[in-house]
Computed example of a mutant assay.
Amino acid sequence: MKPVLVVNAGSSSLKYQLIEPGSPPSAKGLIEEIGSAQARLRHDGEDRGTRPAEDHEAALAWMLEALGDTLDDLLAVGHRVVHGGTRFTEPTVVDRDVEAAIEQLSPLAPLHNPANLAGIRALTTLLPTTPQVAVFDTAFHATIPAVAATYALPRELAEAHGVRRYGFHGTSCQYVTGQVDAENLIICHLGNGASITAVENNRSVDTSMGLSPLEGLVMGTRSGDLDPAVPFHLMRAGLSAAEVEDILTKRSGLRGLAGASDMREVRERQDEPHARLALDVYAYRIRKYIGAYLAAVPGMQALVFTAGVGENDHRLRQEICAPLAHLGIALNADANEAAVGRSEPATIGTGPIEVLVVPTNEEAEIAAQAAAIVG
């Protein structure tokens, strides 16, 4: 099969992989500091230095230069797009109407959709004969029923402004679901961004993130769940709406509690009171959601940990699971520790509910979805 170029464009960074579906990537890289005179490229593990990249088009041109002849006979470009609203529930070949719709959805994901769209537009110009395919993080969660997706707001207001639960990390959840034999799962996607998804009969039925990626778990810099009155309280204290949004999305979570957003740094400082409390709050919030989803999906068969923190912090998995033995969730300590760094799924549980560590691969999922719709 021809390869797919997978692109994940952020506001100031660009990740990419060249993947023939079903095979490991043949090339991959990262460009950082887009918009500056000192953008840096790392390609296939090699530092390619710095050069000006004033926008995504310049960065993507640098990417194409680095990939060179490997782009011959490209099947498609698969783009990660964070928010597809209710319109986009499957991978979609991009045309002008799709571009316009992604732009219209930007108020629901202001930190992500504009950057994703910049990548699409740039590669439409740079690779005009190659199909561009948008793969949406929200798509996997389109199956969430109304009872779980609906907020108790005035109906007309919610409908007019698109206020409902959308959910994110869907591409990761879809990949993980395909790696597990069980059909009823709780998936803990724990990275700098973190969410939990309840899967019944291989379909998402509830997830912790909502209208935006801010709701739910404690994350690297996001607060997760809090009393909706907190923003009003802070604004009455003199902070602007923009300042409150910045606090909740960029200065809260682990950073707010422990002074560091990287779980590895917090873990290294776990003997300090603030870091210990941060770890305890982080694990407690996850346990609460696991308990809620055990109630939401009778017959839950497996609990899955994935993403950077979920795959690599065996102590966190133990902290989460140890108090849940009465619910049928228990770990084998040796298997739990041995699962760190593995590239294949690992079984780490000993109770009636299976516990697994499943390395996620969103790029492989995007490549497969793009190839399926184009091919």
Rank of each mutant, 00 (worst) to 15 (best):
L254A: 08
T347H: 13
D225G: 14
R251W: 14
A368Q: 07
R267S: 15
A37I: 08
G308Q: 12
V340M: 11
T86W: 08
Q104A: 15
P352Y: 13
S106P: 06
G349P: 03
G10P: 00
S204Q: 05
D73Y: 06
T150K: 06
V309M: 02
P352C: 15
T129A: 14
L108V: 12
G167L: 03
N336T: 13
A346S: 09
P25M: 06
H56I: 07
T207V: 15
D47Y: 12
D69F: 08
H274K: 11
L248H: 03
S13Q: 06
A258W: 00
N332D: 11
T143Y: 08
K15I: 12
A101L: 09
R155Y: 15
W62I: 04
G10H: 06
A307G: 10
P21E: 11
A283R: 07
T347M: 14
V81C: 03
T89C: 13
V163R: 04
G10R: 05
E200M: 14
L277P: 07
R80G: 10
E20L: 15
I31P: 00
V304R: 02
L108Y: 07
A146C: 05
L41Y: 01
V357F: 00
L5H: 01
L217N: 00
D69L: 13
H189P: 09
I186M: 03
L185Q: 00
F136R: 00
A338N: 14
L64T: 13
L71G: 08
T249R: 15
K250G: 12
A194D: 01
A37H: 12
E103H: 15
V297R: 05
H169Q: 10
I286R: 04
V77D: 01
A307Y: 08
N192D: 12
T347D: 11
L185C: 05
A368H: 08
T125W: 05
A371G: 01
N113C: 05
L18P: 02
Y166F: 12
V358Q: 05
N113Q: 06
R96K: 15
R42H: 10
T92L: 07
L294K: 05
Q17C: 12
L126P: 07
S172V: 11
E245C: 15
E243Q: 15
S204E: 02
H314D: 10
S36M: 08
G224E: 06
V304C: 04
L356Y: 00
I373W: 02
L356I: 05
N116K: 10
A152Y: 10
P345S: 02
P114N: 12
L248T: 00
Q369C: 13
H43W: 07
C321V: 06
A122E: 01
P131G: 08
M209C: 07
V309Y: 01
T306I: 07
